[in-house]
């Protein structure tokens, strides 16, 4: 029995349903879900073919945090707080660009909401436009590769730091390649009172130019290269990281994806790869990702 039914319209190999199903199943369906516009909304909530078995609402692109805050306040006012946790599932564009205002407001008012960002690193629902969480050097339709430009110029926005700046009780990242860890983090997050932020790295088959069976492998590589550190903060303190057993060069992650493949032929590509490698090395140093301990 699952609360996120089969028959939804996700592309074969999409990581989003894995994360969503495991999280709401972990809460035994006792949750209220607010969803932003994005891939998850399109695949699961077309009229007459809803995949949801839990209370679900989609309102607008920018306001899932505000809607969830409303739900939480209403439950509190009606004395029905024990009926379930209030969750937000939002894409990376809704989190880092369009909805960052209401999100910041929700964090600031400290509503008892778990905000889950499903990060597939661009607006994949509309066909791969760059968002704030798109990494450097990535080919999207709004950052095309030409003679001069090697894809996106700027780095990926550090949403974890933005969430931490709001002094949240719990901030963590995870990856769909480790579904058991996603479940553990979601369960742990709801133990804290107040706003929580969980960012889940989820590969996009069509946008990243990969095949369905590669999606878990690539999510794992993103972690093993250091480009996507899996970290956990409680009350602003880094309490746990997932350790990298064997460090891999970023080239290994880049060359199997169509969105980065131009970096190996473009005249400016080498510099971008060097910068990405330095970002990965900096992540490893900052969070002390290398080591022997393992978890989950």
């Amino acid at each position: 029995m699952t609360y996120f039914a089969s028959g939804h319209g996700a592309c074969p190999g999409c990581g989003i349903p894995v994360a969503v199903r495991n999280i709401i199943d972990a809460f035994d369906g006792k949750c209220f879900v607010a969803n932003s516009t994005g891939c998850l909304e399109i695949i699961s909530s077309q009229y007459g073919r809803s995949a949801w078995g839990v209370p679900y609402i989609h309102s607008l692109f920018e306001n899932p945090a505000a809607v969830a805050a409303g739900i939480e306040s209403a439950l509190k006012a009606l004395g029905r707080k024990d009926e379930g946790h209030v969750l937000v599932f939002a894409g990376d564009g809704a989190t880092a660009d369009i909805g960052i205002g209401p999100l910041s407001g929700m964090f600031d008012r400290n509503h008892d909401v778990l905000y889950i960002c499903l990060d597939n690193e661009a607006y994949q629902n509309t066909g791969n436009q760059q968002s704030g969480l798109t990494p450097m050097g990535c080919l999207t339709t709004t950052t095309p590769v030409g003679k001069l430009m090697p894809g996106k110029i700027r780095q990926k926005k550090d949403m974890v730091a933005i969430a931490l700046a709001h002094k949240l009780a719990y901030v963590a990242t995870a990856s769909v390649a480790f579904p058991r860890e996603v479940v553990r983090k979601a369960k742990k997050a709801v133990e804290f009172e107040g706003a929580k932020y969980l960012q889940i790295h989820s590969p996009c088959v069509t946008g990243w130019g990969i095949t369905g069976d590669q999606s878990f492998k690539i999510a794992k590589l993103a972690f093993e290269t250091g480009l996507y550190p899996i970290v956990e903060f409680e009350h602003g303190e880094l309490i746990r990281v997932r350790k990298i057993k064997e460090k891999r060069p970023v080239e290994e992650y880049l060359k199997i994806q169509k969105r980065f493949r131009h970096l190996f032929t473009h005249p400016k590509g080498e510099d971008v790869i060097k910068t990405l490698q330095s970002i990965a090395d900096e992540n490893i140093r900052r969070y002390n990702l290398m080591g022997t301990e393992t978890e989950v």
Binding site: S6, G7, H8, R49, G53
Partner: peptide, 12 residues
């Protein structure tokens, strides 16, 4: 408002 689990009707 949509009924739950209607996606089960659509065999993928």
């Amino acid at each position: 408002v949509s009924e739950p689990y209607l996606s089960l009707k659509f065999k993928t």
